[in-house]
Design a protein around this nucleic acid. Structure first.
Length: 156
DNA sequence: GCCAACGTTGGC
DNA sequence: GCCAACGTTGGC
């Protein structure tokens, strides 16, 4: 199956692209939405990810990451002390799964949500749909490539 | 901090 | 199965 493309949101106060760059790889734990979880379960090694900073100043796409491990049970669902603890999850029947992602590149600047709204070529992106609150969602290849190219040209 | 747009829960 | 209440997300 062909490589797929995704967008994953993270609040930079919680986990930013700089932190991923430093740690090289991370487990995308804490997703507690079934639709988002299901998308992570579809992810394959090597799939590419737009790393989106949400609830940020400004919000927007901060860079690119790559799926480095396919979905596995989210360990935080079993940890009582975790804010992501889920008492209904059982070890032999985990409810939440998450992938690992690996740092790809950090854009020279954030491609802000406001800018994205002004780019005619990418208006079909799910992330721009009003009321779209998913934290993990698919992205069309053409949109992914358009954004990456745009930000690479932006350097100067 | 506000609040719209969702998703989830639970009473019936 | 309906739907009101509640919780969460995330832009603003």
């Amino acid at each position: 199956m062909a490589r797929r493309y995704w967008l994953m949101k993270s609040e930079p106060d919680v986990y930013s692209i700089d932190k991923l760059k430093k740690e090289h790889e991370c487990l995308w734990e804490g997703v507690r939405n079934y639709q988002a979880r299901n998308f992570m379960q579809e992810m394959k090694m090597g799939d590419e990810v737009l790393f989106y900073h949400s609830n940020a100043e400004p919000s927007g796409i901060a860079g690119v990451a790559k799926v480095s491990h396919e979905a596995l049970p989210d360990p935080t669902q079993f940890k009582k002390a975790s804010e992501y603890f889920d008492p209904t999850a059982k070890k032999d029947a985990p409810r939440w799964h998450c992938v690992k992602v690996q740092f790809g590149e950090k854009f020279p600047r954030i491609l802000t949500l406001n800018e994205m709204k002004e780019i005619p070529h990418i208006q079909d992106m799910l992330v721009l749909r009003k009321g779209q609150r998913l934290s993990v969602m698919p992205v069309d290849k053409v949109h992914f490539e358009y954004i990456v190219e745009l930000m690479r040209r932006t350097n100067g």
